[in-house]
């Protein structure tokens, strides 16, 4: 599905990450953990075409797509939901969804299906997206990705600003989508314990280098903290 090979991104003299390898198969849920500043978000941005890589390759479905523009990557059914308020605040909830659907390339979820998953969005569809609560905004951000029907979704801190019970909800939805539609996920989250329970497999990024790649279960307790 997604293969990243020896990818390196630098900003001038500062190295964001170096020689990073990732390999994800279809239908997997994969976690990515690491310190703040370990390069996780930059790695996501580089994969989806928002940062230029200095070297290395990104392959999607077997095709080399390194250096492609973000909008082209999105049309290859790769979705990236950035951290926090990844919605169009000055547009209504309904217009947000219409925009995403108008750009759909895959078999996206219908508005009806999204409203089933997130009933609150149906209630609020006429309101400005900015007027939604933090949790509702996160649901809308996720909906924008789902409406386009991507094969793989990169989620950056989906639980930011959410109450613990809502985090459970979001992760539950990820599990559902993965089960129903075989959507592949690569997820960064501060709620490491919960993420490890969700993800089949986890990568650990430390100071710009990948230091662990293996089953999430083996990363509990002391084993996990040794990487931080």
């Amino acid at each position: 599905m997604l293969e990243v090979d020896k990818l390196t991104v630098r900003f001038g003299a500062v190295t964001a990450f170096e020689d990073v390898d990732i390999k994800i198969s279809e239908g997997e849920i994969v976690g990515l953990v690491g310190h703040n500043g370990a390069g996780k978000t930059t790695l996501f941005r580089a994969i989806c075409g928002l940062e230029a890589a200095e070297s290395g390759t990104v392959k999607l479905g077997g095709e080399v797509v390194t250096g492609e523009r973000a909008d082209r990557m999105a049309r290859r059914q790769l979705a990236f939901v950035p951290q926090g308020k990844a919605i169009f605040g000055e547009m209504s909830v309904a217009d947000n969804l219409r925009l995403a659907r108008s750009a759909a390339t895959g078999q996206g979820l219908s508005e009806e299906r999204l409203f089933e998953i997130f009933p609150i969005l149906r209630e609020k569809q006429a309101e400005f997206a900015r007027s939604l609560s933090g949790g509702q905004q996160q649901m809308l951000a996720l909906s924008l990705a789902l409406a386009r029907g991507p094969k793989i979704i990169l989620l950056d801190e989906p639980s930011t600003g959410l109450a613990p019970v809502l985090v459970q909800n979001v992760f539950e939805i990820v599990r559902q989508l993965n089960a129903e539609l075989r959507t592949t996920f690569l997820i960064i989250d501060q709620n490491v314990e919960m993420l490890l329970r969700l993800a089949d497999r986890t990568y650990v990024l430390k100071a710009g280098r990948m230091v662990y790649d293996g089953p999430s279960a083996e990363l509990s307790g002391a084993a996990l903290w040794s990487y931080f």
Binding site: A70, D71, R72, V81, P82, I87, M91, L99, T105, R148
Partner: peptide
């Protein structure tokens, strides 16, 4: 639809690209 794209561009260009819109 075009207008919504314009609104999106005004609101957040990067996010708009992430929707697959040039």
């Amino acid at each position: 639809d075009f207008g919504r794209k314009v609104q999106a561009l005004i609101g957040d260009e990067e996010l708009m690209q992430l929707q697959g819109i040039a």
